[in-house]
Simulated assay, not measured.
Amino acid sequence: MQTQPLNDADFEILDDILLKHGDDHSVLNTCELDGFFTALVSGPAQVDIADWFPAIWGGQNPNWENTGEAKQFIELSVRHMNTLARQLANGSEVFAPRFEQTEHNGQPVTLAEEWCFGYLRGVAVANWTPLPVIQAQLLQGISECAEQDNFELPQDLDVAAHQQQVAEIEPAARGLHDFWLSQR
């Protein structure tokens, strides 16, 4: 199996498959999938594919076009999870959550809501136990970001405050990973 990080074409394949087979209960894009996998590789114990794979699809196995499509999705997913695990375990500066980019009133805006929603889905699947106060606060920041509904950004969005909240997500994810790593 290949160990290279995914490239843009690989992410496009994942996005296409997620969109094709997804519904309101499943992961719908690679930003959410990235958050999901980040939580899985960061948690207290390894999560088996038998647990995380159905969670991507809202508990239902997709009606695959063919076995090759399913195999490709699983291989790309595992490759991405392994990349995230290596980056986080090595304290690598190349770890960067896969956030969406948009524009609002002529200003670039980074959106982390879907990533955070995926992260919380991963926390649930990995069955994280209660956290100490500092780590609970880190998770709370991710949770608060996931609760925002930014399908349409409000006209009066405070872009600077929003971007500050988004900037806190990556260090929170690193801090939570480091905490669980020290507990294993």
Rank of each mutant, 00 (worst) to 15 (best):
Q4P: 00
N7H: 01
D10C: 09
F11R: 12
I13H: 08
I17D: 08
H21G: 03
D24T: 14
L28I: 09
G35T: 03
T38P: 07
V41R: 03
S42P: 04
P44I: 08
P44V: 04
A45G: 00
D48G: 01
W52P: 11
P54D: 11
A55E: 12
G59E: 11
Q60M: 13
N61E: 15
N63A: 14
E65T: 15
E69P: 03
E69A: 10
K71Q: 13
L76P: 01
S77E: 07
N82S: 12
L84Q: 07
R86N: 05
G91A: 09
E93P: 00
P97C: 05
R98Y: 13
T102G: 08
G106N: 10
L111P: 06
E114R: 10
W115R: 01
G118H: 05
Y119Q: 05
G122D: 01
G122K: 04
A124P: 00
A126Q: 02
T129C: 06
T129A: 14
T129K: 13
G141D: 02
G141L: 11
S143L: 01
E147C: 11
E152N: 08
L153N: 08
P154R: 06
V159Y: 09
H162E: 04
H162N: 00
P171G: 05
P171H: 06
A172P: 02
G175W: 02
G175R: 10
F179A: 03
W180K: 04
L181D: 10
Q183C: 08
